[in-house]
C-alpha cells in the first residue's frame, strides 16, 4: 500500500501517530537535557568544584554535547525512517479483531 492511496482520514491518523513517535520524544528530551547540562558546564567552566570532583574533566560540557548529538540523531532517524503508513492504518483497522481477541476463549 503506498501513501497515495490513503483517505484523508487515514492521512490525518498517520500524521497524528507520527507526531508522537517515541524517537521524537526521546530526541526532544535529550536535546533539552543536553542544553541544560551543556549550559551549566559552560557557565561554570573551570570551576574548582567540577574539576576537583572529576579530576580535571569538564564533564558537564562533554555530557551536554554528547546528549545534544544523541538527541539530534533521534530526530534524524525519525526523519529517515518514519513508521510505515501501512503499519499505522493496519493497526487501526485491527481494533475489532483485537476486541475479539481480548474476549478470547481458549479452553
Amino acid at each position: 500500500m503506498s501513501e497515495k492511496n490513503l483517505t484523508s482520514e487515514q492521512e490525518a491518523l498517520v500524521k497524528s501517530t507520527r507526531r508522537f513517535d517515541l524517537r521524537r520524544i526521546l530526541g526532544a528530551l535529550f536535546v533539552v537535557y543536553g542544553l541544560i547540562v551543556g549550559i551549566t558546564g559552560f557557565v561554570t567552566v573551570g570551576s574548582t568544584d567540577e574539576l576537583e570532583r572529576t579530576g580535571g574533566i569538564a564533564i558537564n560540557l562533554w555530557t551536554g554535547g554528547a546528549m545534544l548529538v544523541v538527541g539530534i540523531l533521534f530526530f534524524v532517524w525519525d526523519r529517515l525512517s518514519p513508521v510505515p503508513a501501512e503499519d499505522i492504518v493496519k493497526s487501526d483497522e485491527q481494533v475489532e479483531a483485537e476486541r475479539a481477541e481480548g474476549e478470547a476463549k481458549v479452553d
Partner: peptide
C-alpha cells in the same frame, strides 16, 4: 514500555559520565 525505553537512555547518560570520571580519578 515507552517509559522503559526512555529510562534506559537516561540511566546510561548518567552512568557513562560516572564511569568515565571514576576511571579518571
Amino acid at each position: 514500555i515507552y517509559n522503559e525505553v526512555m529510562q534506559f537512555f537516561v540511566i546510561i547518560a548518567g552512568l557513562v559520565p560516572l564511569t568515565i570520571v571514576g576511571l579518571n580519578r
